[in-house]
Design a binder for these strands. Structure first.
Lengths: 206, 206, 206, 206
DNA sequence: AATGAATGAGCATTCATTCAT
DNA sequence: TATGAATGAATGCTCATTCAT
């Protein structure tokens, strides 16, 4: 990763954050925007305004930092998902709200994509730990969908498959669907509606 | 990338292949299975049984090699897609056959995923070149879908969006949809049918 | 030094040992089995179940810890030597007993070997301090030998040289004198007798 | 190892030496005077006036460099030993000459001492390779001694033990046998004679 | 008396790239 | 067309040491 720190003054931290959380949060940003190998421990340290040795003081290896970062991140995301999907609204509305939320934040949930380039670096148990967390994330959505199936709200299909379908549709990169040169990407709400509309047809009865 | 060459003797090439094509083909394999930064020029050279300097003789930089590899690869894939989608069969059958083909071969077409970890390495023009090729790949599918829309075979939506939806559904990792401990992943045909079924509902009229 | 702590539960210390002595003793074990640079202050701390900072509380630098450890160790060894060599037995018997004692315990007294890898790390005065202690150790043996010379028990040669000869013979690694594949190293008593026999001829009259 | 290159202009190399041999030779000097961990690959490179990467071009790891250096060195030493011990002179003279030679050159043959601090770093096979070479070195001396035993020139004892005894006596550090402050160490010839005299008594009949 | 946090300097190793042949 | 040799810059990781508490 080459040095091009994001422009602008970083938001001043009112409350002093525990160093390990600072590292975790910074690392999350970096790992989301760059691949595992692209992010160096130095990058993380510099971005945190601490030394590399300090990063190692909290995380024994880069793989450990990566693993813990990913897990913490997905835990957080899972929380968001639950909050939204648990609301007392029609399922379709909830799915739409979740879609808008995730298209708004750049929080790519394309875990498979994110985990490219870790095959030979992460230990088996580390990979498993991340995968387990990921599965739990999908499970939350699957559970909601399964409930709706039981209620007869939507047709009965494999809820896990449906959850993956939902997520994979959200990864569609809309920013580049535009014609050559046109930088006016359609409003996120519209994209989200298209996706949900498409998805809903896939799961609705008849 | 750590050295664990695939076991067994590589197939001896009766027909001597032009060195640059050999490199391109070898690089394709490596870049598909490992991320950009994970693959070293040495890896490519060793896998080709030539020296690193020879690789540089044909491709000035790693970024160039990567770009040309990706483009050649997507050209090939586009060919496959066209071949299948042009056949004289109902659209749904063609989409199914294409799905099976791509789930069978490990040829991940998850370009976005593949291109992770190149943000700061590839030049703007290189990224654009790959993106352009990628767009053309999607365009082939979009064209077929658009034709079907005009024929009234399916409902009218943004064909590019539909093409992306089709592709993104194909990236669903079915191998891990299984329950804890179960190693019996469903047959590819079944997965493909589920996906196409789901997709078809998304695009079919009513 | 890589982590492979000796197996089994370390003996619980009923009597609480002053921390500085604990450190000194632990460090002795480590420095005997590994070279100076191989042993980290962390290793010492972990082995003592205290923090690195605590080690530094008692010993200002690693070089100081090393120096004091070595001196304490050699003082102890000198004590052992004296105890044995002072006994009321024929000189040859005493030398034999000492030999057996030192071949039994793995306590390598190969100070020169031990001090390899400290040339540029220890200060002049530190090196000298250790050397002085070492000389005193040799001196004990030399004194006993000199007495025997005066008594006419053995021939007159430089007693210091004789002491060094005695010690150097004890460093012969008998475990590897065996033939290929044979793992039956000769009993220590036999080795010790051979050495003493050899040494005795070197110093005996006629 | 801290930077204090040996003073004086290094001898100009008339004949340009192959780089790998230059490295091997330089490394030998460094590893003889400092412990394994004390010598960094940078040290080797700098001493050779090449870059660290070049050292790695020829030797894949530090352990490999060390192993090959040691083996090459002991091969050379074995050659010297053979040359001297094969001469047509009384055994005692040959042993004396060899002693003088090795006390003159700083070539410490204290392999055990030299190998301290490699336990956890060298692979099993690397350690074995060095040990094997070492054994061959001792074997040369043992063979000569065994011949003399068969000729009835000296008494019959384990020739390998005798060889080790001979070598271990040569490691006696005579430079420090001197009294406090006196820097007049005895002439090497005298030391050598004392050693050989002592050794000869150990192996001679009667 | 003891420690948690932090760091600067160093180290083994890798890698994209160059160049003379 | 192809390569052996060489390198500068990184990168993951370690370690002796400091300091406020």
């Amino acid at each position: 990763m080459k040095k091009n720190r994001s422009p602008g003054r970083p938001p001043s931290h009112k409350v002093t954050q525990p160093t390990n959380e600072l590292i975790l949060q910074t690392a999350a940003q970096l790992f989301l925007n760059h691949s595992y190998s692209e992010v160096s421990m130095d990058d993380v340290a510099i971005e945190c305004n601490i030394t590399k040795a300090t990063v190692y003081y909290y995380f024994n290896t880069k793989a450990v930092l990566y693993t813990e970062t990913m897990i913490k991140m997905m835990e957080r995301i899972r929380g968001h998902i639950m909050t939204i999907l648990v609301e007392d609204k029609p399922l379709k509305s909830r799915l739409l709200k979740l879609a808008i939320t995730y298209l708004t934040e750049t929080i790519s949930i394309d875990i498979d994509g994110i985990m490219r380039g870790t095959k030979n670096t992460l230990s088996e148990s580390q990979t498993q730990a991340i995968r387990k967390e990921e599965d739990q994330m999908y499970q939350v959505i699957a559970n909601v969908l399964e409930d709706a199936m039981k209620m007869g709200e939507v047709r009965k299909i494999d809820p896990i498959f449906a959850a993956h379908a939902y997520m994979s549709l959200l990864t569609i990169d809309t920013d580049r669907n535009t014609k050559e040169g046109t930088f006016i990407s359609p409003p996120i709400e519209e994209t989200a509606e298209n996706i949900i509309d498409f998805f809903w047809r896939g799961i609705s009865k008849e």
